[in-house]
Structures are given as structure tokens and as C-alpha cells.
Lab assay of single mutants.
Amino acid sequence: AQASVVANQLIPINTYLTLVMMRSEVVTPVGIPAEDIPRLVSMQVNRAVPLGTTLMPDMVKGYA
């Protein structure tokens, strides 16, 4: 199964992502692939992302 990117903490709206904020986990539904974690660093979330939430492409500015 493919691992997705999951929030490792509460990520406030407009926060620039860093490695410590994200982890990879096999979840349903599938979100942003874990292999894209390096690409996500320094990208901004466009909403608050609670701890344990799967990151979806529409949550990250400029990802989709």
C-alpha cells in the first residue's frame, strides 16, 4: 500500500511546511504520496491541518 503524508502536529493556516510537521503513514483515503515530502518542504498550507490529518493536494498552495 502507498504511504501518504500525515500531519505530525497541528499545522496552522498559512504555515510553511517543515520535515518535523509531516510523517508518512498508510491511510485511507490516500493523500499526497509520502515520496513528495521533500517537495512539500517550504510550501504553505491554505487551511489549519489538525494532528493526524492526511494532507490532500488541495490543502497545499502550489502543490496540485
Rank of each mutant, 00 (worst) to 15 (best):
E35C: 03
L10W: 11
E35Q: 08
P50F: 12
S42T: 08
P57A: 15
L17V: 03
A7R: 01
Q44R: 07
P12I: 04
P50E: 14
V6P: 01
V6Q: 05
A7H: 01
P50W: 05
G62Q: 14
P38T: 10
T54A: 09
T18K: 03
M59S: 08
I11C: 02
V45K: 00
L40M: 11
V60G: 01
T15G: 11
V6A: 04
P57Y: 05
G31P: 01
A34M: 09
V41L: 15
N46Q: 15
T54V: 10
A3K: 07
P12W: 09
V27Y: 02
S24H: 08
M56C: 04
V60Q: 00
A3D: 14
A1M: 10
G52F: 14
V41D: 08
L40W: 01
T53Y: 14
Q9W: 07
R23K: 09
I11Q: 00
A48Q: 15
I37W: 02
G62D: 10
P33F: 15
K61I: 14
A48E: 15
V20C: 08
L51M: 13
V49D: 00
D36L: 05
E35S: 11
V27W: 02
D58T: 14
I13P: 13
E25Q: 08
I11F: 02
M56V: 13
T18A: 10
Q44D: 03
P12K: 06
T18M: 13
G52V: 02
I11P: 01
P50V: 08
T18Q: 13
A34S: 15
M59G: 04
M56A: 09
A64D: 14
D58F: 09
V49Y: 02
T28R: 02
Y63G: 06
N46V: 09
D58R: 04
Q44H: 06
S4C: 04
L40E: 00
P33M: 10
Q9P: 00
L51T: 08
Y16K: 10
L40S: 00
L17F: 03
V60F: 06
V60D: 01
E25Y: 04
D36N: 12
A48C: 03
N46W: 05
R47F: 07
Q2K: 04
E35W: 07
V49L: 12
V45W: 00
M21Y: 13
T18G: 11
T28F: 04
P29L: 10
T28M: 08
M22C: 02
V45E: 00
N8L: 08
I13K: 09
M43Q: 13
I13R: 08
I11A: 01
V45C: 03
N14W: 07
G52M: 07
V20P: 14
V30P: 10
P12R: 05
K61S: 15
